[in-house]
Computed example of a mutant assay.
Amino acid sequence: MKHSDIIPFYGGEHPEMFEIERRCMDRQGKVIEALDQLLPNGMVLDVGAGNGFTAEQLQSNHRTIVAIEPDPLMIDSTKAIIWSKGTAQDIPFHISTFDAAYSTWAFFFEGVADLEKGLDEMKRIVKEDGLLVIVDNYGEDEFCSLSTNPIASNVDYWVNKGFEYQIIHTSFSFDSVEEARKLLSFYFGENAATINKTEFEYKVAMFIKKNTKE
C-alpha cells in the first residue's frame, strides 16, 4: 500500500465532525435500507469503510461484512465486524473472494487512472455475477449547492461502465442551527456560515452492476 494511494480523510483528525456527519446525514436510514435489500448473503466487502458505521448495520447472521480502511485513525475495533487495512487500488484479497463489494462516499480519486484501478480491484475480488455498488452524491440538491467546487458524482462515467443507478431522496437533518453551521462551514467555509435552518435536501446516487469477468 503506497502512501500516495491514500486520500486524506478528515474523520480521523476531527472525530467530532465525523460524529455529526454520521448522525445527521441520511438520518432516515434510506441508504442503509436500500443497501440491505440489495446486497446478497455471504461475504461482502466494504471498501473505504471509515469507522465501520455502515458495515456494522449491514452485518447479519447470513451476511459477513469485511471492512477495508486505509486510515488507522478511522478503524473502530469495538465494532463487531472484520477489519482489513488497505486501499481500493490494492485490495489485499484473492480473486473471487466476495459475493459483493460496495463503497459509500469513499470511491473518489485524484485522477481517472486511480479510479480505474480501484474499480478493477473491486471486480477482481468479487465473484462472477456478484454485485458491485458505489454510493455517492448525486447533486442537484441543497447540500451540494453549498459547495463552490463540484462534489457530485459523474453519472455518465458510471453509466458508460455498465452501471445502472437509482436516486435516493434523503436529507441532512441536524439537531440545531449551530450544529448545522459547525459541520457545513467545516465542509464549505464561509458559504455555509450564515445558514439558519436544520434540514437540507440531499440526493444520493447508488450505482449498481453485476460483475463480469473479462
Rank of each mutant, 00 (worst) to 15 (best):
D141C: 11
A113V: 12
E116G: 08
V47K: 00
D26Q: 01
D136A: 15
S77F: 14
L146P: 03
L38H: 00
I208C: 02
T194S: 09
W105R: 05
T198C: 03
S153C: 12
I68A: 13
E16S: 05
K203Y: 12
A55M: 05
I65K: 03
S147Q: 12
I134M: 10
L45W: 02
W83R: 04
T148V: 10
D136K: 13
F93E: 05
T212S: 07
E199K: 15
F18M: 12
H169T: 11
W105E: 02
G139W: 04
I32H: 07
L38C: 04
S176L: 01
A67G: 00
Y102L: 00
Y202M: 11
N137I: 06
P150D: 15
L115Y: 08
S4W: 05
I81L: 04
R22M: 12
F109V: 02
D156Q: 13
K2R: 14
K182W: 05
S147W: 04
Y187V: 03
K117P: 02
F163I: 00
V135N: 00
E199T: 13
K79Q: 08
S147D: 12
S145G: 09
S4D: 15
S153K: 10
W83K: 11
M122P: 06
D129R: 13
I91D: 08
H169W: 00
H14T: 07
A80C: 11
R181F: 07
S103K: 02
R124Y: 04
G86I: 10
A88W: 01
F174Q: 08
N137P: 02
S96H: 09
A101P: 01
M25Y: 13
N51I: 09
M206N: 03
V126Q: 04
A192Q: 01
Y157N: 08
D114E: 13
L73F: 08
V44W: 02
S145K: 15
A67F: 13
F188G: 02
A152I: 01
W158H: 08
D129Y: 01
